[in-house]
């Protein structure tokens, strides 16, 4: 084996890793915010009685769920310009990750929407709220509370998926780690530190989301 661990080179570049981590987080949060909007619209499509709304929504979810995310990322960045859609690396990546997460969130939200008791919607109708007001004041806020645990795991897996931005040279954590790996040859140390940063961030994100859940939990 003959490999002795020496972290000093990695520590010297630790700043780079942290900046990369910050960018990873920004990418994930940007993607989930846009993805949540896409997912919400799609979820209403999925539960719609009208086939015109339901079929495109179901097609979108099925297609995206069965494609590797890396193919989507490369497609958006390298192939779309051929169609005249030219985006910067970061914009392209966030948009792709948002569309990707939208499909998963749509299914999460669909289940959440179906779990809202019909009686609550009727109570809203009975005091004279319009269907749209019922959606915004009752159904959506309750749905979000119900799906918080799934939302939290989606955020964490999106955060991990930001590593794929390295494939189009977005300087996030994995990209920086690979750079340090090549520059310093401290292979083992670099990847141990990078993994630990990912694991630690996932743990913190999970804890934060649990705190949010506890604050918003509805006592029954």
């Amino acid at each position: 084996m003959g490999y002795t661990l020496n972290f000093s080179a990695v520590w010297r570049s630790f700043d780079q890793l942290l900046w990369g981590l910050l960018l990873s987080l920004e990418l994930a949060i940007g993607a989930i915010l846009i993805g949540a909007v896409i997912g919400l619209v799609t979820a209403f499509g999925l539960i719609s009685k009208s086939g015109w709304a339901r079929r495109p929504a179901a097609l979108y979810v099925t297609v995206i769920r069965n494609l590797p995310i890396l193919v989507l990322i490369l497609f958006s960045y390298f192939a779309l310009p051929q169609m005249g859609v030219r985006l910067g690396k970061i914009e392209s990546f966030v948009a792709t990750l948002a569309i990707y997460s939208g499909a998963y969130l749509a299914e999460v939200f669909r289940a959440g929407l179906l779990s809202i008791p019909n009686g609550l919607k009727e109570a809203g109708l009975a005091i004279g709220l319009t269907p749209m007001q019922i959606r915004t004041s009752i159904v959506i806020p309750l749905m979000f509370r119900n799906v918080l645990p799934s939302l939290s795991s989606t955020l964490i897996s999106l955060f991990k998926d930001t590593s794929l931005a390295a494939a189009i040279a977005v300087p996030e954590l994995t990209f920086e780690a690979r750079k340090i790996n090549v520059e310093t040859f401290r292979v083992v140390e670099t990847w141990i530190v990078a993994s630990c940063l990912y694991v630690a961030t996932c743990t913190v994100l999970a804890a934060l989301m649990r705190m949010v859940e506890r604050r918003l939990v509805i006592s029954r």
Partner: peptide, 24 residues
């Protein structure tokens, strides 16, 4: 399992590729 699940698959792939050969 927690460590593996907290690490992106791409990082696992890169780490495996670079580390295994380095440690012989």
């Amino acid at each position: 399992t927690d460590f593996i699940r907290g690490t992106p698959v791409l990082v696992l792939v890169l780490a495996s590729f670079y580390i295994l050969s380095t440690i012989g």
